[in-house]
């Protein structure tokens, strides 16, 4: 019995349990994420979205790349796949093509998805592959020591930019929209309810969906830039963020301390990869074409 149960001034029902626990490998806890890191918060939102969308958990697969956020695949008690660096989307594409019944969620960080894996991201979005991409953006390469990432805003101090970053950063939501994503949203770890709702929408939507989640990185990003700890960043998100659904994504670039535009920017329907494949092949081959059969053992 731990000390809390002794201290609690009222009764806790015996069958009460944390709603996250059925979705996690609790034997792996505590996790490796730093105090004040927001990745765990995004995992909470994701599990609430899975609960609310009543998804069949046997048909949900999580694919992660390398990085702090890449650890989510290891902690999720679903079919999960921890892939090589940057290649989460190609692995997920293969998974989806081999078994189209699967709901494939790519859960990875900004360094993994947009630096080494940037090429794969734009092509999966172009093809409108039915993947749900959740990108936890902490604006740096956190696991390797806080180097400048393609998402690091100007004037930020990082391990490889001790005098400040001068390269322009990617605007991930604009990139996703331009590449052809069906659904594009941005939230921060402060907006837990909105993020959970957005994730639930994405689980029900067809096509390539992209959610960017801004998350604090107190150990490497905030510390070098004297931005305080995780809680200070959460307060900053609360004060600096502005919900603007449907805002033009080109106006939503992130800066070091400026306004953070959040919301659902794009929600459109484009023909998916399978529809286009079947349409084209039926047109050219006619009766000689048969839709690919799914053969995958007992699934």
């Amino acid at each position: 019995m731990n000390e809390t149960t002794l201290e609690v001034p009222y009764e806790i029902p015996v069958d009460a349990h944390n709603p996250v626990e059925p979705f996690l490998r609790m034997d792996r806890m505590p996790h490796i994420w730093c105090p004040g890191c927001g990745i765990g918060t995004t995992v909470n939102c994701f599990t609430r979205a899975l609960l609310d969308s009543k998804a069949d958990l046997d048909k949900v697969a999580i694919v992660s790349g390398i990085g702090c956020t890449g650890r989510v695949a290891g902690y999720a008690s679903l079919d999960s796949f921890h892939t090589t660096h940057g290649r989460a989307i190609p692995f997920a594409t293969g998974l989806k093509l081999a078994n189209p019944e699967l709901q494939v969620v790519v859960y990875s960080g900004d360094g993994d998805l947009f630096a080494i894996g940037g090429n794969h991201f734009i092509h999966a979005a172009r093809r409108n592959m039915d993947l749900k991409v959740i990108c936890v953006n902490n604006l740096t390469y956190a696991m390797t020591g806080g180097q400048t990432a393609p998402t690091t805003p100007s004037h930020v101090i990082s391990a490889t930019s001790p005098y400040g970053v001068f390269e322009p950063a990617f605007n991930l939501v604009a990139l996703a929209e331009a590449a052809g994503a069906s659904y594009v949203a941005r939230w921060t770890t402060y907006h837990v309810k909105q993020l959970a709702r957005s994730m639930e929408e994405v689980l029900k939507k067809k096509g390539f969906c992209f959610i960017e989640v801004l998350s604090p990185c107190p150990t490497l990003y905030q510390r070098r830039n004297k931005m305080g700890d995780g809680l200070d960043t959460m307060k900053f998100y609360k004060q600096a963020s502005k919900v603007r659904h449907g805002a033009p994504t080109s106006e939503c670039a992130l800066t070091k301390s400026g306004e953070i535009v959040v919301g659902k920017f794009v929600d459109r329907d484009r023909p998916g990869y399978f529809e286009l494949l079947n349409a084209q092949m039926t047109e050219t081959l006619g009766e000689r074409y048969a839709e690919p059969e799914v053969v995958c053992g007992n699934c």
């Binding site: 944390n18 709603p19 996250v20 806890m29 505590p30 990745i39 765990g40 909470n44």
Partner: peptide, 8 residues
């Protein structure tokens, strides 16, 4: 609190 807690 449960939704915010990064450590479950």
């Amino acid at each position: 609190c449960g939704m915010y807690c990064p450590d479950f």
